[in-house]
């Protein structure tokens, strides 16, 4: 069954024809060629696919493209203001070496931003670790990811993002 979908991705109106079974992540990757959002599992557990839909952090591998009809979607590609001006969370990941192979990174960064906002820019280490339950990383041992998120929270606050 072929269905038309239209949504806003990173501020740009996009549309396409999908099957009912097309997942949002497939729509992003295969239809729009936005391959920054990754797929790391088939049981909705790894978080490599996390994006923001209408202000909520979601796993784009567990939502149909048609369910995002009319939504505002933000992906890893939509965070940096310009190639030279990264989002404070991206900057903190770089500063703190919170990524190695980079595969989990898009989902990590998206989850991290959501976490900081939900906690009103105030986080402690235990909270960060607990909030990362849905994001697996096999490279970093999480140590530097936690550090980066703790560093980004005040930076996001002062940058007003």
């Amino acid at each position: 069954m072929s269905i038309s979908v239209a949504m806003t991705v990173n501020g740009k109106a996009v549309s396409g024809k999908v099957e009912a079974r097309t997942l949002l992540v497939q729509f992003l990757r295969e239809h729009l060629g936005m391959t920054g959002t990754h797929v790391g599992c088939d049981t909705s557990q790894c978080g490599a696919c996390v994006v923001d839909v209408d202000g909520k952090s979601v796993k784009s591998c567990t939502i149909l493209a048609v369910q995002a009809e009319g939504s505002k979607v933000i992906t890893i590609e939509g965070l940096a203001e310009s190639p030279d001006k990264l989002h404070p969370m991206q900057e903190a990941f770089r500063e703190n070496h919170a990524l190695q192979c980079g595969f989990c990174t898009p989902g990590m960064v998206m989850s991290a931003i959501d976490m900081v906002k939900r906690h009103n820019y105030q986080l402690d280490e235990a909270t960060v670790r607990r909030e990362l339950e849905g994001n697996l990383c096999r490279c970093t041992g999480y140590h530097n990811i936690v550090k980066a998120i703790l560093a980004a929270a005040p930076a996001m606050k002062s940058a007003g993002v």
Binding site: K56, S57, V58, R118, G134, N135
Partner: peptide, 9 residues
Amino acid sequence: IGDPQVRNR
């Protein structure tokens, strides 16, 4: 229940 993303949906 689950993780933040699961709880959001």
